[in-house]
């Protein structure tokens, strides 16, 4: 175990959605390499509060990489330097004494800043509303083992379903496209037999909603996959595009209603 570190922070501060923002500098002193990145920020905030200043606002909840609430640009990289790691799971041992770290919110037109590092990600919920579900009312299903699903399909569906909805893919994408997130849900459900009846119209409505929310188009840069803390594969985007095209050919237009259940 090494000694403690001093870290210079440059943090985006913005009082509200319409307020102008700017960078401010802070020093985090005596940071233990064992502490997590957010615990480092907790200590900085505790000090700011005791000085009567506004602490840095950032979203977080589970602090174990699963709720998808945390997320910020750390030195220009969504969720920071460690691969497959959310901001809350990043540890200070990834940095060294004297490092400068710049913190910014997710930058995307569709994700307006609420305050400091907190952004509004409600478009992600609306994309799910557009069709990211299987319409099955409570109480109607058959026995769970009535329909065998090959382990391979179940595993691949699970790979896609692992998305935590953090929005890092959008923040990392030069076009601020939300394709990886959307494709993950379309693939999760489309890979399962239960998801087949709505498969193509799901793809059509979710893609339509994505455009409506003002996200950019996908040009398969792959930055999203590099930033994704859950390793969601860009192959799912190809799958989504396939489903979309097939849907556009085969689905009757009146069936494509937003959020129809």
């Amino acid at each position: 175990m090494s000694g403690t570190m001093n870290i210079k922070l440059k943090v985006w501060r913005q009082a509200g959605p319409k307020a102008p923002g700017k960078f401010e500098e802070y020093t985090a002193t005596e940071v233990s390499p064992e502490s997590s990145f957010l615990e480092m920020l907790d200590v900085v905030n505790e000090k700011l509060v005791l000085e009567g200043k506004d602490p840095i606002a950032f979203d977080h909840d589970c602090r174990e990489g699963i709720c998808g609430m945390c997320g910020m640009m750390i030195n220009g990289v969504a969720h920071g330097p460690s691969k497959l790691t959310t901001t809350c799971q990043l540890h200070m041992r990834s940095f060294k004494d004297g490092d400068s770290i710049t913190l910014e919110p997710w930058r995307a037109k569709a994700f307006p800043v609420i305050r400091d590092l907190v952004v509004d990600r409600s478009p992600l919920d609306r994309i799910i509303q557009a069709g990211g579900f299987i319409s099955v009312a409570t109480g109607s299903p058959q026995d769970a083992n009535a329909l065998p699903i090959s382990k391979m399909d179940a595993d691949e569906a699970m790979d896609a379903a692992a998305c935590i909805g953090c929005g890092a893919c959008v923040a990392a994408c030069p076009n601020a496209s939300v394709s990886l997130f959307t494709a993950a849900k379309i693939s999760h459900l489309g890979l399962l037999p239960q998801g087949q009846p709505e498969r193509y119209r799901r793809a059509l409505s979710m893609v339509a909603q994505m455009d409506l929310e003002g996200f950019g188009g996908c040009t398969l840069f792959g930055e999203c996959m590099a930033a994704c803390p859950k390793g969601i594969s860009i192959d799912f985007i190809k799958r989504m595009n396939g489903d979309y095209i097939w849907g556009a050919i085969t689905e009757k237009p009146e069936k494509v209603t937003l959020g129809s259940g």
Binding site: I134, V136, P141, Q142, N145, L147, P148, S150, A154, A157
Partner: peptide, 18 residues
Amino acid sequence: DQCVAQGVPFAREYGGLL
């Protein structure tokens, strides 16, 4: 039953059952 119908990808065996 409900969760499987919703598309919850529970772990499965090679025979396809839960």
